[in-house]
C-alpha cells in the first residue's frame, strides 16, 4: 500500500503526495539546483529527507498549508545565489502541529505526523 506519489515521476502509487512543481513560481533569476528527496512512511508519520548542501538554517524555509508542503532553500548570496525549491501536495491527513524539521550536514530531515484519525488502529476482538 502506498500513500505517496510524485505525479511527475509517473509512478504507480496512488495520490497521497503529488508534486506541484519543481521550479519556483516567482521568476527568480537565481539558478535552480536539483533537490533530491527520499520519502518514507511509518505507522505514525511520514519522513522526508532532502539533500540541500550549502544551505544554512537561515536560508531554509519549510511551510505546510494543507495540502501543500513547500521546501525552499537559498544557497549563497548576490549574483552567485542559487535556490532549491519543491512543492508537494500531501493528501495524507497531517497534524500541522506535528511537523518538525532538522538540518544536519546539508540534509533536511522532515517529520510529518499523521493526523490521529488516520493512524492505523488495531481493534481488539473480545470473546463474547
Amino acid at each position: 500500500m502506498s500513500f505517496f506519489n510524485l505525479t511527475r515521476s509517473k509512478e504507480k502509487e496512488d495520490k497521497s503526495v503529488s508534486q506541484v512543481n519543481d521550479a519556483s513560481p516567482t521568476a527568480t533569476r537565481a539558478r535552480q539546483l536539483a533537490l533530491p528527496v527520499d520519502i518514507y512512511e511509518g505507522a505514525d508519520e511520514l519522513l522526508l529527507l532532502a539533500d540541500l548542501p550549502g544551505v544554512e538554517p537561515e536560508g531554509l524555509s519549510v511551510s505546510f498549508e494543507a495540502p501543500e508542503l513547500r521546501i525552499e532553500g537559498r544557497r549563497g548570496s548576490g549574483d552567485t545565489a542559487s535556490v532549491y525549491s519543491r512543492t508537494f501536495r500531501v493528501s495524507e491527513q497531517l497534524d500541522p502541529a506535528g511537523i518538525s524539521a532538522e538540518l544536519n550536514a546539508g540534509v533536511l530531515k522532515l517529520r510529518l505526523a499523521k493526523a490521529a484519525h488516520t493512524k492505523p488502529r488495531k481493534i481488539e476482538v473480545r470473546a463474547g
Binding site: 505517496f4 510524485l6 527520499d38 511520514l46
Partner: peptide
C-alpha cells in the same frame, strides 16, 4: 549509505 529506516516503507528514493 542511504538506509531505509527500520519499520518504514519507501515511497520515494531519489537520494543516492
Amino acid at each position: 549509505n542511504v538506509a531505509v529506516p527500520e519499520g518504514y516503507s519507501t515511497h520515494r528514493r531519489e537520494r543516492s
